[in-house]
């Protein structure tokens, strides 16, 4: 008897908890996010774009369009997130060395490390962060990128839906000679010039607005209008009937 009660209590207790657990998981997992990509401070790139990330559990779908980038050169593109980062794009004050540009090291405190590599094919893990042969080369300076079903950790998925992840497209032609070159090497890979990895455009993935809008004060709403209209219309139709009857009577009298 006592055992039965205990079991019943436990069962009831967990049943009561279930909906809350479910709600919590669903909330953390799904969402639509958009980043408007704007030129990174100091780096002087006249490019722009938009990235949209749809989060479904631990799967993300990404589309991105950008223009104004150095044409015909690989542009590494990533989603960045760091728990300790500021979850924003770097500002001029992040230029730690004071060399007048923002490189990848300067960007770290703002947006954190790479969590997803937005490659066109193959692996999308941070390991592919500099897989230059698999990134978009921006023909005509434009990127039109679409990639579905990228799997991420639940932490990353949650960071994206909470507006803490940042999309960065790299590749800055500082000296405007149409290619990546120069004496300064990349902080990430000394075999590459820093131009190839400096952040060009950047945007925080913001969660879409929740729900609709309250856009009316009711001044033109007349809740009883329909009833009034229906009744009035009905009466008018009845009037037509009785009017016809009257007319026939009148005609008959002549």
């Amino acid at each position: 008897m006592r055992t039965t009660t205990k079991i019943a209590t436990v069962a009831l207790g967990s049943a009561a908890l279930l909906p809350f657990l479910g709600a919590g998981i669903a909330q953390a997992a799904d969402g639509n996010t958009t980043a408007t990509l704007r030129p990174v401070a100091l780096n002087g790139v006249k490019a722009n774009g938009t990235a949209m990330v749809t989060v479904s559990g631990t799967r993300i779908d990404v589309t991105m369009a950008a223009s104004g980038l150095l044409a015909g050169s690989p542009h590494a593109a990533h989603i960045h997130f760091g728990a300790d980062a500021r979850h924003e794009c770097p500002v001029a004050g992040d230029d730690a060395k004071g060399d007048g540009t923002i490189n990848t090291t300067d960007g770290g405190p703002a947006y954190g490390p790479i969590v997803v590599s937005l490659t066109k094919t193959g692996d999308t893990s941070p390991k592919s962060g500099l897989a230059v042969d698999r990134f978009d080369t921006a023909p005509g300076g434009k990127i039109s990128y679409e990639r579905g079903s990228i799997n991420v950790s639940s932490d990353v998925a949650q960071a994206i839906t909470e507006g803490k992840a940042v999309v960065v497209v790299h590749g800055v032609d500082h000296n405007d000679n149409g290619k990546y070159d120069g004496e300064t090497k990349s902080d990430l890979d000394p075999s590459l010039p820093t131009e190839a990895t400096d952040p060009a455009i950047c945007g925080v993935l913001n969660a879409a607005p929740a729900g609709g809008m309250d856009t009316g004060a009711g001044g033109t709403s007349t809740p009883n209008n329909e009833g009034m209209l229906l009744l009035g219309g009905g009466l008018l139709i009845a009037a037509v009937g009785s009017g016809a009857f009257t007319a026939r009577k009148a005609r008959n009298r002549v």
Partner: peptide, 20 residues
């Protein structure tokens, strides 16, 4: 019938008018 018609016209018309 004539009287009913007049009343119906007046009330019905008024209601429709009010609605609009």
């Amino acid at each position: 019938a004539a009287a009913v018609t007049v009343v119906l016209l007046l009330v019905g018309g008024a209601l429709v008018g009010k609605a609009y």
